[in-house]
Amino acid sequence: MADAVDSPRVTRQEMVPLTEEELDRLFAAVKETYLYIPTCIVVATGLRLGEVLGLRWQDVDLERGIITVRQSQQIKRKREGDRITYQLADGPPKSKTAGVVWTYRPP
């Protein structure tokens, strides 16, 4: 039966980077909040949010400017009757670059 139906096509949208003005507004909005550092890491590295939230100090080498992506934090949604609960869980990174080392060299 499944052979008689064409599978849906996934259309990938082209990534459009934020402009300098949009970045300024973004950083102004998160300045002095707990979101500032994760936002800086996402913008500087292009890592997914879950990959940034999955970082541990053992993944960060400040002296050499290296971040290693070993895991990702994922939100698990669970429905129990009328109640929905959410739980954070560590798991493997989604991206194909999982485990790849990202290097930052300060100016």
Score class of each variant (00 low, 15 high):
97 T>E: 05
12 R>A: 10
63 E>S: 13
97 T>A: 15
20 E>R: 15
98 A>V: 08
84 I>N: 05
27 F>E: 07
8 P>D: 04
101 V>C: 13
36 Y>S: 10
65 G>S: 04
29 A>Q: 07
27 F>I: 13
60 V>K: 11
93 P>L: 04
88 L>K: 12
82 D>A: 13
64 R>L: 06
97 T>Q: 11
12 R>W: 07
95 S>W: 04
57 W>A: 02
39 T>A: 13
12 R>G: 03
101 V>W: 08
97 T>I: 07
19 T>V: 11
86 Y>V: 05
30 V>Y: 11
40 C>A: 10
18 L>P: 09
75 I>A: 03
84 I>F: 04
78 K>W: 00
22 E>G: 10
90 D>R: 15
28 A>P: 08
50 G>T: 05
48 R>L: 06
58 Q>M: 09
87 Q>S: 12
45 T>H: 02
50 G>R: 01
4 A>W: 12
48 R>F: 05
102 W>E: 05
40 C>I: 10
55 L>A: 03
75 I>Q: 07
32 E>N: 15
55 L>P: 01
106 P>S: 05
40 C>N: 06
33 T>A: 07
22 E>V: 07
71 Q>Y: 01
60 V>H: 07
44 A>W: 06
61 D>F: 11
76 K>A: 01
8 P>W: 06
23 L>I: 14
70 R>Y: 00
93 P>S: 05
53 L>S: 03
58 Q>A: 14
40 C>E: 05
89 A>N: 08
52 V>D: 01
75 I>M: 05
8 P>F: 09
81 G>F: 02
10 V>A: 13
96 K>N: 12
96 K>E: 08
12 R>Q: 12
30 V>Q: 09
65 G>M: 07
70 R>A: 00
99 G>N: 08
47 L>C: 14
32 E>R: 15
69 V>T: 00
69 V>R: 00
41 I>R: 02
6 D>L: 13
26 L>C: 08
75 I>H: 00
31 K>W: 10
